[in-house]
Design a protein around this nucleic acid. Sequence first.
DNA 1: TATTACCCTATCGATTTAATAGAGTAAGCA
DNA 2: TGCTTACTCTATTAAATCGATAGGGTAATA
Lengths: 136, 136
Amino acid sequence: MLSKKTKYGLKALTFLASQEGRTPVQISEIAKHENISQKFLESILLTLRKTGLLGSKKGKGGGYYLIKEPKDIPMTTVMRVLEGPIAMVPCVSLNFYEKCEDCPDEASCSVHKLMLQVRDSTLEVFRNNTLADLVP
Amino acid sequence: MLSKKTKYGLKALTFLASQEGRTPVQISEIAKHENISQKFLESILLTLRKTGLLGSKKGKGGGYYLIKEPKDIPMTTVMRVLEGPIAMVPCVSLNFYEKCEDCPDEASCSVHKLMLQVRDSTLEVFRNNTLADLVP
DNA sequence: TATTACCCTATCGATTTAATAGAGTAAGCA
DNA sequence: TGCTTACTCTATTAAATCGATAGGGTAATA
């Protein structure tokens, strides 16, 4: 299940991408427009800034803005920052790999085999979509 | 993230599918072979029986067994029983649809659009795999 | 009729999630 | 300079979920 954090994050990014220029947008404006708890959104935007997806400006006329062009922001990046691993199981994750405790042999694991396919097909979707594709 | 319940359920089903005949297999044997907590596995197998995927036999020589042939058990069915919705968001779920509380218009929702693609690609994987395909 | 093994309910600790509160700090403007 | 605005950070919390465990009940078979 997609977390609210990811959902809100995606909506906020899309909203920023839909702006005319790249002038800072206040948190309160984003929160209001997307029906998001402002305080919760604050922490999400902070994460996105720390990862280098967003920039921020303090003081009057401040807010958050996109650093790169929407078409240069692939969904793989966004999803990994917000949701974490794209794979449904750590043992098939590219960026967050972990061995299963149970499961003596990965190669002969039925779950592994299936989830590998799911990961690849999901990954393809995210690779084929940039932030620009999400803007209505 | 895939729940342990689903993971264990898949492993148990695969193990049953790999058996020679369709004679009942004891819970304890499955649990031991797959490194699963026996009590936890009990509840999982119970679910699978109630859904009609497994049959059970009590008493000496009892246990669980597959009712249908592995090749006639699509992964879509198994995943929906064990994991629930295949979609990452209720508003794009075929079998567990729910409207988002926020989000005034589904058609223009960026998250909706993206998650629809993910659902379709994941669904295709599950439709192309039956239990028989999981057996090593 | 005794044993085996499935069946069911209840509980529990740990973790995660979503949200809230409140204080702190930097930037811009008069 | 001083005030306002708006981002920044820490801490807390309520609720939900997950994974696991315990223990007794019951039906079927040898």
